[in-house]
Structure formats: structure tokens, C-alpha cells
Design a protein around this nucleic acid. Structure first.
Lengths: 190, 190
DNA sequence: CTCATTTGCCTATAAGTATTAGGCAAGTGC
DNA sequence: GCACTTGCCTAATACTTATAGGCAAATGAG
């Protein structure tokens, strides 16, 4: 019988697509096997287990997100960079909700350290170079920005801001205005 | 044979405890049955299904959170209120990570409308009465605050800020300082 | 107090998912 | 053309969700 040509990479990519279609929670080894018209056990030659599959999808999400962010930041600074980075997260989450959810999947420390996750922190720091912040305030600001990006995108994706005025896109834009103003005028330690 | 005295409420409360112990994802009808030393099928007399159980746990989380918030806000205003509300979320998430995760569980619109979720938005709005914001900026600020609270707490719970200086508690305090400054000086529409 | 009814937890069953062990045939290298 | 490796298979086990039907414990009417 003909072989399906499975590899860990192809499975992970298909898993990422599946996640976008049905949600990351619903990604299962069985569903993936069905998609390749192959028996479930066959996947275990390529994937250690279900956790392995989810981890690989998470890594795809983190990497695509980091790649987009690096692209968007090239040649920009200040508020322009802030907006660009923020929109990378929001747009990616809207285009690829499953992958975005996957990027939140808890990785073991070694995997996380080797992932594109570290580039994300670096890029947020790069945006802050356009503002006049020194340590430790820069780190505080990195964490605040990360929280806003992730928090807003999560709540929006969960439907928190839908069906109510004003439009979510407007709140997003005004929130970025506000963050820009805040970073330009970061309060001194009280 | 003696009856175990199951009710939907007792099951939901035990489910909430289980969630805090092993994580909301790991809460299962089977595990709950084991905890009551009862057969799985018995739970289905009290719970419609697994989704029903998770929904009930989510409602417990939302309600406890709202109760704590109402308590914390009583008699406070301005930055004092902002800090109090923010700390309710952070403290609750740290004390009850499973319940906090449950509070993020996606509810159907009718259930959500009848839940304590609506009180949360009202209380955030109440905090903003201590600042000089008019619509639509007030709504933008509500959404921004919600994003920061949820985003920061999520990332911190996921371990994002651990094992790195400065201390996460310090970033949290400084982020709240910054939000207070931002709300007192909200930028005009550009 | 007794009998009928309701209710609670049970057994049995079925389907979906995760995972491991072992087999056979399709590809690969010499 | 043959030995070897590798890929997908069947088979089996265990766990979870969910439904149906049964028996015994609580409840309540007389």
C-alpha cells in the first residue's frame, strides 16, 4: 500500500491548519490522522505523543509571529514601531486564532529557551528604544506592553468586545495612542 | 447502599477545588467522580455533561471574583480603587489559578449575560469615575484596563515573568503607577 | 406504620482518544 | 537482486464522555 509521506514537520503544519479551523483545544492526534487518511498509530512514528504535537504547533506560531514582527519593525521607530508590533499580534491572532492560542501553550523551560519566544521580548525592547526609558523601567514597560497586547487580543478573540459600541478597532487604536503617550511620559518612581 | 449526597452545587464546588489543584484543563467528570468515590455515570443525574460542569465552575470563579472586587472597591476611589481592583484579580489568580482559568471559559451569550461577568465591567467603570474621562474614551479605558489586568495576570501565571529581574511584583506596582498616570492624563483624540 | 412513588446511584454499553507492541511490505543501499 | 531500514498497519489496553435501564433508599400519603 502506498505511503502517505508523513513527517513530523508536515504533521505539525497540518496541525496548525487544523487548529485555525477548529480551535487549538480540538487538535487531537486522531483528528490529524483522519486528515491524512491514516491510522492513528502511524503518527506515533513521527510524534512522541500529543504533547509533542501541540508543542510543535506552538513553536510554529511563535516563529511565524516573530518573523512577522521582525518584518514589521524593520525601518520603524517610535509610535510607528509600537503600532506595527501591536498590529502584528492582533492581525495574526485574527487570521490564525488556533496558532495564536497554540503560541500560549506552556512549554518546558528548555524548549521555551530555544524557541522564538525570546525574540519577542527582544523586539518589544527594540520598540522601547524609541522612548526614553532606562532600567528597570524599561523592563516594567516591556511587561506592561506584553500584557496589553496579549490581554487585548485574548479578550477580543474571546468575544469580549463584540456586539458593543464603540468598535473594538477604535478602542485598539486609542489604546495604542494612550500607550504611546504613556511611554513618552513615563512617571518617575513615587 | 448509602447515598453520597451529590448535588450540582456540591459537584461544582468540588470541581473548582480540583481545578485549583490540578488545573482547569485537567478537570474531568471522571476525576470528579473519583473524588466523591462514586461511579462516573452517577454525576450525569446532576450535570448535563462536561460542558455543564465547566460552565458551573466558571460561574463560581466569576462570582467570587466579582464579590471580592465589590468588597475591595467599597469606600475607595482614584488610584486607591484602581490598585485595589487590580490586586483582586492578581491575588485571586494566584490563590485560585484553576478558578481563574475557569473564569475565562467561553460561555454561551445567555449564560454570560446572566453571570457575574457583567458586574466586572461595571466595576471597572466605577473605578474610572475617579478620573476625568467621558465617552467614548471611558469605554476605551475600560477595555485597556481589562486587557492589562487579564494580560499581566495570565502571563505571570504562565511563568512569563519568573526567574528574571526585576521582581514581577515590582513591575506590577509600577505598571499600576503608569496606568494611574495615564488615566489622569488621557491623550486627546489625535 | 406501610405502601407507592420518586430519586439517586448502580451496572452495562458504546464511542472517541492516547499510547504501546509487534508485523509486513515499500523504499534504500550495495 | 538481496539485505536492511523505515513507514504504516493491526491488535490491544486504558481512560474519558455519554446514554439506557435497574434496584434500593428516601419520601410522603393514607
Amino acid at each position: 500500500m502506498a505511503r502517505a509521506g508523513l513527517t513530523a514537520e508536515r504533521l505539525a503544519r497540518a496541525g496548525a491548519e487544523l487548529a485555525d479551523e477548529v480551535g487549538f483545544e480540538q487538535v487531537t492526534v486522531s483528528a490529524l490522522a483522519r486528515r491524512f487518511d491514516v491510522k492513528v498509530a502511524s503518527l506515533y512514528s513521527h510524534l512522541k505523543n500529543s504533547h509533542d504535537l501541540k508543542t510543535r504547533i506552538a513553536l510554529i506560531g511563535l516563529q511565524e509571529l516573530a518573523d512577522r514582527a521582525a518584518d514589521a519593525l524593520a525601518g520603524r521607530s517610535g509610535k510607528d514601531a509600537l503600532t506595527a508590533l501591536a498590529n502584528v499580534y492582533r492581525d495574526y491572532a485574527r487570521e490564525h486564532p488556533g496558532r495564536y492560542a497554540a503560541a500560549q501553550y506552556r512549554l518546558d523551560p528548555e524548549t521555551a529557551a530555544a524557541s522564538a519566544g525570546v525574540r519577542h521580548a527582544q523586539m518589544t525592547r527594540a520598540v522601547l528604544r524609541g522612548y526614553d526609558l532606562t532600567e528597570p523601567d524599561q523592563t516594567h514597560a516591556v511587561r506592561l506592553l506584553g500584557s496589553v497586547f496579549h490581554g487585548y487580543v485574548s479578550l477580543e478573540l474571546a468575544g469580549g468586545f463584540s456586539h458593543s459600541a464603540p468598535d473594538s478597532a477604535e478602542s485598539w487604536a486609542r489604546s495604542l495612542d494612550a500607550l504611546d503617550a504613556l511611554l513618552r511620559n513615563w512617571p518617575a518612581q513615587t
